[in-house]
């Protein structure tokens, strides 16, 4: 073992949910990875990109390219931020062949956390234990931009003491959408409440997802409604023992 992995924890986890980053680090170390946290990292630029500010997004993306230039393998606790890099950086640099080459090289080195475990580390059982009934919320970007559906469920299936109950309807948006959540607050809130009802119908005590952003939206709505359901990032579940 002793393989080296760089963490990109995302700005949201860095600033608001550091425990998610620590949990991800704990799981990776348990699997024998040597971790590195490039201190220059900040954000992938998605907030600017999704808001229509491409020049600003490009500047942040370039900083990202510089920061992770020497990282052989990057793991991210977010489907959305991973998709920004693997699906949208190329659009930002389509007129800059040199940068585009770096982007394409980066695309092959960056992994969303759950997929990294099942496809690179090739593990499903990370030795976790959590006595809980949980439901899994598919983040839209993880699901539809990266095609991630099975990996987190296979990982959850190996957690001792854990029961997974699927939501009906499955795979619907929580209504976060970045700046959408505040630009169209009332609409975003209504979407969150519809998702919340699906969560409550499962009877689960915990909602698990691959994205801290979806969980912030869902926890915000659950907390406002006075529901006792909590949210946990998959990394936190897998770090439990």
């Amino acid at each position: 073992m002793g393989k080296r992995v760089s963490l990109f924890v995302t700005c949201l986890v860095d600033q608001l949910f550091p425990k998610v980053g620590m949990a991800m680090a704990a799981v990776l170390e348990r699997l024998g990875y040597q971790l590195d946290f490039p201190e220059n990292q900040t954000c992938c630029g998605q907030p600017a990109f999704n808001s229509g500010y491409r020049a600003e997004a490009r500047a942040v993306a370039r900083h990202f390219l510089d920061t992770f230039e020497r990282s052989e393998c990057i793991v991210v606790p977010s489907g959305s931020c991973t998709a920004m890099v693997t699906r949208h950086f190329a659009e930002l640099f389509h007129k800059d062949p040199a940068a585009l080459e770096r982007v394409h090289a980066l695309e092959k080195r960056i992994w969303e956390f759950a997929t990294f475990l099942t496809e690179v580390a090739r593990v499903e059982d990370v030795g976790a234990r959590l006595d809980d009934v949980v439901t899994f919320h598919d983040g839209c970007h993880a699901l539809r931009e990266l095609g991630i559906a099975d990996a987190p469920r296979r990982l959850l299936a190996q957690v001792r003491g854990l029961e997974l109950r699927e939501m009906e309807p499955a795979a619907e948006c929580c209504g976060f959408g970045g700046t959408f959540a505040v630009k169209f607050a009332e609409l975003s809130g209504a979407m969150a409440r519809t998702r919340m009802e699906a969560i409550l119908r499962t009877g689960a005590r915990t909602v698990v997802s691959l994205d801290a952003s979806c969980l912030m939206q869902l926890q915000g709505a659950l907390s406002r409604a006075g529901a006792s359901v909590r949210t946990m990032h998959l990394a936190e579940v897998l770090a439990s023992r």
């Binding site: 970007h141 539809r144 619907e172 959408g177 630009k183």
Partner: peptide, 13 residues
């Protein structure tokens, strides 16, 4: 504001 009235969830595509 119309193109912004979306969470970009991708269900449409």
């Amino acid at each position: 504001a119309l193109p912004f009235a979306s969470s970009l969830c991708g269900a449409c595509a």
